[in-house]
Design a protein around this nucleic acid. Structure first.
Length: 790
RNA sequence: GCCCGGGUGGUGGAAUGGUAGACACGCAGGACUCAAAAUCCUGUGCUCGUAAGAGUGUGAGAGUUCAAAUCUCUCCCCGGGUACCA
C-alpha cells in the first residue's frame, strides 16, 4: 500500500523545529570561508507575493543551503524596499497612511516567504522606511554633499496642471495624465542630483572585473556610452556685431567640411541669448513649447517624422572653410547630451540626412564609400588639404585646424534624486534666508517623516503641508528657516542596503569603520530580475565607490557575481497582471501541493534566466516525484551493484555542478532519472546520500525522509556529499561512426580502448561493414564520442 | 527608434560544434477497481508504411564546416530596459 504524503503536517512540524533551534541564524565563525548570498529585496506591494519573486529566492536558498553544507559561513538575509510611489497613491485614494499599509503588506510578504521554507536569517531583516535605516540614507546624502557629489540644478519634470502634481513617467500615458487624462507638460524645477558622471570612467572600466553575464555588462557599457570626439566652436554671424559662438559636440570631426547646418536643442539657452537677432522668434517660441510636450524617447525615435525650424536672422560660420551655414532648432537634438548642439553632416549621418532631405538642406559628401548616408570611414574628398587621406587618420589635425578640442563624452547623466513626494527619505537640508543652504548636522539625524501631512495633491511636496516638518531653526544662526521638503528617489535606499544586513540586531548599526561590513562584503552572489540590469546596479556600484573614496568601505564593487532570473508569465503567455485577471497566488499552490512542490516546480520550469509561462497543470509532475520518494524502498544492508555506484557518483557530481551554475532544472531532471532507473540497487547509505543531494531543493520532505531512515539530527546540519571520482566514468559508451559527413551508425565500446583496438572492433561490426561497402579505413579521428573514418 | 536577450514536438523544456527532442506535462493503450480517482506499465516529433524501414525536422533565407538548434550575415516575430514603477 502506498504511503500518504501529508505536506501540511510535515511542513508545520519542521518549520517549528527550525524556528526553535534557530537553524538559519547566520554562522559568524570567522575561521570559515564566507559566502554572502543576496536576493534583490522586494517592494512590499499591496498585491502580496507574486510567483515571480520566489523564483530568485528559491534559487538563492538552494545555493545558500549548498554552501552551508559545504562548511561555509553564509549570510543570507531578506528585507524590504519599503518606500515608493504605490503606497502614496494608495494613501491618496483610501486615506490610509503609507506607514500603516506598508507594515501590513510586509507582514503578508513575510508570512508567505516563511511558508516556502527559505533559509533566511530573519534576525537581520531591514526596512528602508524605518527611521533607523533612512538615518543612514540621509547620512550618505550628507557625505556626498560634503564631497561636492550632491548638488542642485534646474531640471524638467512631468507636470499635470489640472491635478497640480508632478507625475512619474509611468503615470504619463500618451502624453496625458493617467488620472485626469489632461495633457502633461514639462516644467522646470530646482532639483537635487548626485554626480554619478564623476565616476563614469571607473564605472565603465571596472565592468571588466565583474562575474556578471555579458549581456548585462554590455548594457551597462552602452548606458555609460563613452564616445571620443571633439567640441568645436562655430562663430555666429548676424546683422549686429557679435562675437558669440555655438559649441557643438561631434564624434566625427573628420566630416567637418561636410557640415551644412547647425542644430540646437529646443531647450538650449543660447536661443534666448540670440533673441534680438532672431527675426522669427514667435515661431521659435511656439516650437519650443510644442517640444516640451514630448519625451526624449518620442523625440529621438528614428521612425518618426523629423520636425524643426530655422533661426532666421543668424548664421554660423564653419571654422574650417569659413562657409556661412544656417542654424536650426529641432527636437531630435537633446539638450542633456554633449553641448545640446550639433553640426549636421547629412552625407554621413542618418538623422541629419533625413532632416536635410525633408527641409531641402545642402548635402556635401566628404568621404568616399557606399550609398549616402555613408557612416563608415574612407578616403577624404571635398575637404581641401585633407583630400586623399584616410578619414580616421585626420581627426587630430582637422580638430586643431578648427581650433576645437578633443574630448570624451558620456551618455550617462547625473542622477536626479529629488522627488516631490511624501513616502521617501527626507533630504537633510535646511534653507536659511541669512546663511543659505545648510546641511542638517549629523547628530540631528534622522530627519523623520512627519505624520501631519495631507496627501491630496496641492502642487507642492506633501511635506510642505506639515508645519512641524517645514518650519525649523537654521543649524548655523538659529533664526527661522525651512526644511527641504523633497524626498529621495527610492533607488538611493536600495543603493546601500546590502551593507545593513552585515550588522546583527544585537549591535547598533554603524556604517563607519565597521568591522562587520568588512567581514562580509562584497556580496558573493547577487540574485534578481534583469529589469534592474542598468539603473539599480549602476547606482549601487556608484554609491559603493563613493563610500570607498570617503574611506567608509574598502571595496571597489558591491556585487562580485550576479545571476538574473527570468520573468514568469501567466498561463496565457501574457504578463501576470490584475487587469488581465491571470495572476497566480503562491499561497494557493502551497496550500494544495505544499511548499516543496512549489519550490521544485519553479526550479523545474526551465532555465533560471529564461522568460517562461506558468502552467498549473505541469505541477503534477514534480508533485508525483515527491510523493514517489515516500514509497522508495531500500535494503537495510551494504549490498549494491556497480551500476548503482556509478549512477550515484555521477548524480552527486552533476547536481553539485548544476547548483553552482544555476541549472536547477537539469539537476532536478537528473534526480528524477536516478529514482526511476530500474537497474538501481539502493541500500540505506546510498539513499541517505540521495536525500542530502535532494535537501536544498525540498527541505521539508527531505528532512522527513531523513528522519524515517532512523537519523536523529537535522539534514541541514549534515555535510554535503563527497564525489568518488574513480567510480564516475561509465566503462562502456556509445560511439557514433561518421564517414564523409554521414552517420553510419553507432557502436558500444569500452572507454579505455586504443585506436588500434577501436579499428579492429569497427571492422568486426557487420552493420557498419555492410554500409562501408568494403572501403578501406586509412585514418580515424576521435572527438568525445564521435569516430570519424577517413 | 536605440541598447540587451530569446524563437526547438500538442505543451514546459534537454542538447553550446558531434546520434535533436533528456526530464516533465498532455494524449493513447493496458493493469488494478463494481466504477471512478489515485497508482503502476507501454507507446508518443511529423509524413509514408502492418512492419522492417525510408524521408523530413530546431522562426524564414543564405553562408562557414567532414558535421550547425549551436558559429557568421540578412529578415520576421516575441520579451526586458530606455534615466520619476521598483
Amino acid at each position: 500500500m502506498s504511503k500518504v504524503y501529508n505536506h501540511k503536517a510535515i511542513e508545520e512540524k519542521w518549520q517549528k523545529v527550525w524556528d526553535e533551534k534557530k537553524v538559519y541564524q547566520t554562522d559568524t565563525d570567522l575561521s570559515k570561508k564566507k559566502k554572502y548570498i543576496l536576493d534583490m529585496f522586494p517592494y512590499p506591494s499591496g498585491a502580496g507575493l507574486h510567483v515571480g519573486h520566489p523564483l530568485g529566492y528559491i534559487a538563492s536558498d538552494i545555493v545558500s543551503r549548498y554552501y552551508k553544507m559545504n562548511d561555509y559561513r553564509v549570510l543570507h538575509p531578506m528585507g524590504w524596499d519599503a518606500f515608493g510611489l504605490p503606497a502614496e497613491n494608495y494613501a491618496i485614494k483610501s486615506g490610509i497612511h503609507p506607514d500603516k499599509s506598508t507594515k501590513s503588506n510586509i507582514e503578508t510578504f513575510k508570512r508567505q516567504l516563511k511558508s516556502l521554507g527559505l533559509s533566511y536569517d530573519w534576525s537581520r531583516e531591514i526596512n528602508t522606511s524605518d527611521s533607523e535605516y533612512y538615518k543612514w540614507t540621509q547620512w550618505i546624502f550628507l557625505k556626498l554633499f560634503e564631497k561636492g557629489l550632491a548638488y542642485k540644478k534646474k531640471a524638467p519634470v512631468n507636470w499635470c496642471s489640472s491635478c497640480q502634481t508632478v507625475l512619474a513617467n509611468e503615470q504619463v500615458i500618451d502624453g496625458k495624465c493617467e488620472r485626469c487624462k489632461n495633457g502633461v507638460i514639462q516644467k522646470e524645477l530646482e532639483q537635487w542630483f548626485f554626480k554619478i558622471t564623476e565616476y563614469a570612467e571607473e564605472l565603465l572600466a571596472d565592468i571588466d572585473k565583474l562575474d556578471w553575464s555579458e549581456a548585462i555588462k554590455t548594457m551597462q557599457r552602452n548606458w555609460i556610452g563613452k564616445s571620443e570626439g571633439a567640441k568645436i566652436k562655430f562663430t555666429v554671424h548676424s546683422s549686429q556685431f557679435t562675437d558669440d559662438s555655438i559649441e557643438v559636440f561631434t564624434t566625427r570631426p573628420d566630416t567637418l567640411f561636410g557640415a551644412t547646418y547647425i542644430v540646437l536643442a529646443p531647450e538650449n539657452e543660447l536661443i534666448q541669448k540670440f533673441k534680438i537677432q532672431i527675426t522669427n522668434f514667435k515661431e521659435i517660441e511656439n516650437y519650443i513649447k510644442e517640444s516640451k510636450k514630448k519625451t526624449d524617447l518620442q523625440r529621438t525615435d528614428l521612425s518618426k517624422e523629423k520636425t524643426g525650424i530655422e533661426l532666421k536672422g543668424i548664421r554660423a560660420i564653419n571654422p574650417v572653410n569659413k562657409k556661412e551655414i544656417p542654424i536650426w532648432i529641432a527636437d531630435y537634438v537633446l539638450n542633456n547630451y554633449g553641448t545640446g548642439a550639433i553640426m549636421a553632416v547629412p552625407a554621413h549621418d542618418e538623422r541629419d540626412f533625413e532632416f536635410a532631405n525633408k527641409f531641402n538642406l545642402e548635402n556635401i559628401r566628404v568621404i568616399e564609400g557606399g550609398e549616402l548616408p555613408y557612416i563608415g570611414n574612407g578616403k577624404m574628398i571635398n575637404s581641401d588639404k585633407f583630400n586623399g587621406q584616410q578619414s580616421n587618420n585626420i581627426i587630430n589635425e582637422i580638430t586643431q585646424l578648427a581650433r576645437g578640442e578633443l574630448t570624451t563624452q558620456y551618455k550617462l547623466r547625473d542622477w536626479l534624486i529629488s522627488r516631490q513626494r511624501y513616502w521617501g527619505a527626507p533630504i537633510p537640508i535646511i534653507y536659511c534666508d541669512k546663511c543659505g543652504m545648510q546641511p542638517v548636522p549629523e547628530d540631528q539625524l534622522p530627519v523623520e517623516l512627519s505624520t501631519d501631512v495631507d496627501f491630496k495633491p496641492t502642487g507642492e511636496s506633501p511635506l510642505e503641508s506639515s508645519k512641524s516638518f517645514h518650519n525649523v531653526k537654521c543649524p548655523n544662526c538659529h533664526s527661522p528657516a525651512r526644511r527641504e521638503s523633497d524626498t529621495m528617489d527610492t533607488f538611493v535606499d536600495s543603493s546601500w542596503y546590502y551593507l545593513a544586513y552585515t550588522i546583527n540586531k544585537n549591535s547598533k548599526f554603524e556604517i563607519r569603520n565597521s568591522k562587520l561590513i568588512e567581514d562580509w562584503m562584497p556580496v558573493d552572489i547577487y540574485v534578481g530580475g534583469a529589469e534592474h540590469a542598468v539603473m539599480h546596479l549602476l547606482y549601487a556600484r556608484f554609491i559603493t565607490k563613493a563610500l570607498r573614496d570617503m574611506k567608509v568601505l574598502n571595496i571597489d564593487e558591491p556585487f562580485s557575481s550576479l545571476k538574473n532570473q527570468g520573468t514568469i508569465l501567466a498561463e496565457d503567455g501574457r504578463k501576470m497582471s490584475k487587469s488581465f485577471n491571470n495572476v497566480i497566488n503562491p499561497d494557493d499552490i502551497v496550500d494544495v501541493y505544499g511548499a516543496d512542490t512549489f519550490r521544485l516546480y519553479e526550479m523545474f520550469m526551465g532555465p533560471f534566466s529564461d522568460t517562461k509561462p506558468w502552467s498549473t497543470k505541469n505541477i503534477a509532475g514534480v508533485n508525483r516525484f515527491i510523493k514517489k520518494l515516500f514509497n522508495i524502498e531500500y535494503k537495510n544492508d551494504d549490498t549494491t551493484n556497480e551500476h548503482t555506484k556509478t549512477k550515484i557518483e555521477q548524480l552527486k557530481k552533476s547536481v553539485s555542478d548544476d547548483i553552482l551554475s544555476f541549472s536547477f532544472n537539469t539537476a532536478i531532471a537528473k534526480m528524477m532519472s536516478f529514482v526511476k532507473d530500474k537497474n538501481l540497487y539502493l541500500n540505506k547509505k546510498i539513499w541517505q546520500e540521495f536525500l542530502i543531494i535532494l535537501s536544498p531543493f525540498v527541505p521539508y520532505a527531505s528532512q522527513e525522509l531523513w528522519t524515517k531512515t532512523g537519523k536523529k539530527g537535522l539534514i541541514v546540519n549534515e555535510q554535503w556529499v563527497k564525489v568518488d571520482k574513480s567510480k564516475l566514468d561509465d566503462q562502456v559508451k556509445d560511439f557514433m561512426i561518421i564517414i564523409g559527413g554521414k552517420k553510419l551508425g553507432s557502436i558500444k565500446l569500452m572507454t579505455n580502448m586504443s585506436e588500434h583496438e577501436i579499428i579492429e572492433q569497427i571492422s568486426k561490426d557487420k552493420i557498419i561493414c555492410d554500409k562501408l561497402n568494403n572501403k578501406k579505413i586509412k585514418n580515424i579521428k576521435i572527438h568525445e564520442n564521435v569516430i570519424i573514418l577517413m
